[in-house]
């Protein structure tokens, strides 16, 4: 009876100790995983920042104008080639009653000018 008590006591103490060690080890393991995820997040954020800058550079007005001019032979429209029609309906009613407001564009002859 006494022997069994000691056996249970030893098993109990050992289990508690093992559980404690397991917990500690697991905390460290989760810590490593968190660090790994944290580094992944940082890396993705850096990639996001880099892409944002690239996007911003690619959409810069001067670049678009340069590319449009050199690659697509585009240029600013001449006076009268773009007609803007009021979209609030008030001014338009007097001019063309009943017509939908329009923004008119046209292609000028055979050149590659896109309005």
């Amino acid at each position: 009876m006494k022997g069994a008590f000691y056996v249970f006591l030893i098993i109990g103490l050992s289990s508690t100790f093992l559980f404690y060690v397991w917990g500690k080890v697991d905390v460290v393991r989760v810590g490593y995983e968190l660090d790994q995820r944290s580094n992944e997040k940082k890396s993705l954020e850096q990639e996001h920042d880099r892409l944002q800058i690239t996007f911003s550079q690619l959409t810069a007005s001067d670049r678009i104008a340069r590319e449009a001019s050199s690659q697509l032979s585009m240029g600013p429209p001449d006076p009268g080639q773009v007609i803007l029609v009021s979209d609030d309906g008030r001014n338009n009613e007097n001019q063309n009653p009943g017509l939908e407001p329009l923004r008119v564009a046209n292609i000028h002859n055979s050149s590659m000018r896109i309005r």
Binding site: D78, P79, G80, Q81, V82, I83, L84, V85, S86, D87, N91, N94, Q95, N96, L99, L102, R103, V104, N106, I107, H108, N109
Partner: peptide
């Protein structure tokens, strides 16, 4: 043009006259 402010009435005619050099100037209305 960027602010999409339409020109004044009557001036469209003036503009069209300028643009008429190109016969492809089409008023879709």
């Amino acid at each position: 043009r960027h602010l999409r402010i339409p020109p004044q009435r009557g001036v469209d005619v003036q503009m069209a006259a300028v643009g008429n050099a190109s016969t492809s100037m089409i008023d879709l209305a």
